[in-house]
Design a binder for these strands. Structure first.
Length: 611
DNA sequence: TCAGCTAACACGTTTGAATGGT
DNA sequence: AACCATTCAAACGTGTTAGCTG
């Protein structure tokens, strides 16, 4: 069955959007503007008629959808490819839009920042689809926002609703299939942490990942009810306590003073009961940890795919193919489409043909520290040596993938994992995870030593913890960073069983390691994304570039609370001599999370050192 | 015949209780 | 007794797919 599934997943019969026909039949791009402006007007009328907009609200402010934005599925008859042909909108195109035209003075300063906007933009460029089911389905990406400007002592509700963008129903080819179905009962998802103080809200990332979408109008568990094949816009509401008297999960969000509403154009999505665009499916599979079972991970791969994965670190960063890419290719290749990247099994450019598709936005990160230090990522707006505007979008998004696991919001353990014969797992918490005691377990050490590092609870920043081995080496690092020493040469892409040659102790670590490790080591990180479609590939060291074999010798890594397993996995596979993750003590946030379903710490910077 | 929807399924993650060691 | 690490299993989330419906 898995074979059948995978072969089917290679190309959906419904994936029309990236067909050559769809891609080249897009010279009507400019025509969209007129249509979309018209659509926008209709959209606003629809919102107003549905009672989704409050009195006095300016609908144009509430759904600030740039007429040039062509990312979401539309009904212009040109299909999704038309939307896909656009490049990332400028930041101005996707700015959050407050909807309340007359907020009170205390509400005026409130700002909401969409977390993981890069991921949303990726989906947005393709045409975001959200599955809805009778039982309810979570959104992916989930809405996650950071709120600033609240009165720290004021009590607020944070709520989310989803409103129709227009009054149309779409077909699987994103053509208008008629008017929208009858309005569904209004539903508002009130964040479970409500009611909370402004200080509480501002200290955490407000996540709506528990929100579920359903098409069952009789559903009574509070899921948001939507129609399939309709286009919707999520909205986030900040509601002051004294204006929440009318707040109800089954009533439209009250409007007016004391309520401020935000929407993000890049979060517009189309509801479906089955994915229509294979690019969306692939992106969701690669970024949603719950869908890891569908990732290409070495099994049932074609020879080409296996090679591509094995040599993943050789390849340049690849981003989603755009119409401009395609036209450029046509120019460069004399209009030939024979090597169109769309022929790739997952619809992405093949490595051989991808070099001219490099996006400036995916250019390699800049060396900015010591010559041997390589800044690979940071969390936006925090301790970032590069300004956000100049920071490669792909690198940012890949940073999330790099960060691995670090449960924070729910107080669960952070799990640091790696692969092969290197470090196995850790449940980590230090000064970045103040409520947990840190520990780290390393295996596959040189000489087979079973090294267990318990960093301890480094409250106050003082170094703590015990180190059974390599203590002197590790002690030189701040206690707030978990330290690892592992043997790169012992690791392998073949998974935990690759711990051959390890001592009984290390073998024990693998045989008896935490099941999370056992389950996850095969699939995580871009190395297991055989096309490296969604992130940035670190440049391999020259040594490794010459050979896929991994170097021998020690590997010194440190990590913050966020999982470092991915980095280590990358290192162990790519031949990086070391990687060093630098935490962000000041920016440590409980509740920090990722948009791909993982809980991350707030490590804001990561660098690699040649040692 | 077709598009859209549903439910069963396999696979993986998450979560918490149980167990054993220190 | 308290704490911690580990194991285990159930619950849950996910995309796929065959079959159903209109």
């Amino acid at each position: 069955m898995s074979d059948r599934r995978r072969s089917a997943a290679a190309l959906s019969s419904r994936a029309h959007a990236f067909s050559v026909e769809a891609l080249i039949g897009t010279n009507k791009k400019r025509k969209l503007r007129g249509w979309e402006e018209k659509e926008l007007e209709l959209s606003m009328e629809s919102l107003a008629s549905n009672g989704q907009l409050g009195d006095g609200e300016d609908p144009a402010n509430c759904l600030d959808i740039d007429p040039d934005s062509e990312a979401s599925p539309g009904s212009d008859g040109e299909g999704l490819a038309e939307r896909t042909s656009c490049s990332f909108g400028s930041p101005a195109d996707l700015t959050p839009t407050p909807c309340d035209p007359s907020p009170s003075a205390s509400m005026e300063e409130i700002q909401v920042e969409l977390q993981c906007a890069d991921l949303w933009k990726r989906f947005h460029d393709i045409g975001t689809e959200m599955i809805i089911t009778k039982a309810g389905r979570r959104m992916f990406p989930a809405m996650r926002v950071k709120i600033v400007g609240l009165d720290p002592h004021q009590q607020y509700y944070i709520a989310m609703d989803i409103v129709p963008v227009d009054n149309k129903r779409y077909s699987s080819k994103w053509m208008v299939a008629g008017n929208a179905d009858s309005p569904v009962p209004p539903r508002v998802y009130i964040h479970p942490d409500s009611l909370a103080s402004g200080d509480t809200w501002m200290r955490q990332v407000v996540s709506f990942d528990k929100l579920k979408l359903t098409n069952n109008e009789l559903e009574d568990q509070g899921h948001i009810i939507l129609h399939s094949m309709h286009k919707y816009q999520p909205r986030v509401h900040v509601i002051r306590k004294d204006f929440s008297s009318e707040l109800s999960p089954t009533k439209p969000v009250p409007t007016g003073e004391g309520v401020k509403t935000f929407s993000f154009p890049e979060t517009v999505f189309t509801t479906v009961t089955a994915y229509q665009n294979q690019q969306i499916t692939r992106l969701k599979i690669d970024r949603n940890p719950f869908a890891k079972g569908f990732r290409d991970s070495g099994r049932n791969r074609t020879g080409l795919e296996a090679i591509m994965e094995t040599y993943a670190f050789w390849r340049p960063p690849v981003r989603t193919l755009t119409f401009e890419d395609f036209t450029n290719m046509q120019k460069q290749q004399g209009g030939s489409t024979g090597t169109s990247p769309t022929t790739s099994s997952n619809g992405t450019p093949s490595p051989s043909g991808a070099t001219h598709l490099l996006s400036p936005s995916c250019s390699p990160p800049t060396f900015h520290l010591a010559p041997n230090t390589f800044n690979v990522g940071c969390r936006e707006s925090q301790l970032c040596n590069l300004g956000l505007s100049e920071y490669p979008a792909c690198a940012r998004s890949n940073m999330a993938a790099l960060q691995g696991y670090g449960g924070l919001a729910d107080g669960s353990y952070s799990r640091l994992q790696t692969t092969g014969g290197a470090v196995t797992s850790a449940q980590a918490s230090d000064s970045f995870l103040p409520q947990r005691t840190s520990s780290l377990i390393a295996a596959g050490m040189q000489g087979g030593a079973h090294t267990s590092l318990a960093a301890g609870n480094s409250s106050g920043g003082s170094g703590g913890g015990k180190m059974d081995a390599y203590g002197s080496q590790l002690a030189s690092f701040p206690a707030s960073q978990l330290q690892y020493v592992m043997q790169a040469g012992a690791s392998s892409t073949s998974g935990p069983s690759a711990s051959s040659g390890s001592s009984p102790s290390s073998a024990h670590m693998f045989s008896g390691s935490h099941h999370h490790v056992q389950q996850s080591t095969y699939n995580t990180f871009s190395l297991h994304n055989p096309y490296n479609l969604y992130g940035y590939n670190f440049p391999a060291s020259p040594r490794l570039a010459a050979s896929p074999e991994k170097p021998q010798g020690g590997l010194l890594c440190s990590s913050t609370s966020a999982g470092a397993f991915a980095e280590r996995q990358y290192l162990s596979n790519s031949g990086m001599d070391s990687m060093h993750m630098i935490g962000n003590p000041a920016g440590s946030q409980q509740g920090a999370g990722s948009c791909d379903g993982r809980q991350y710490g707030s490590s804001s910077q990561m660098s690699m050192h040649m040692v």
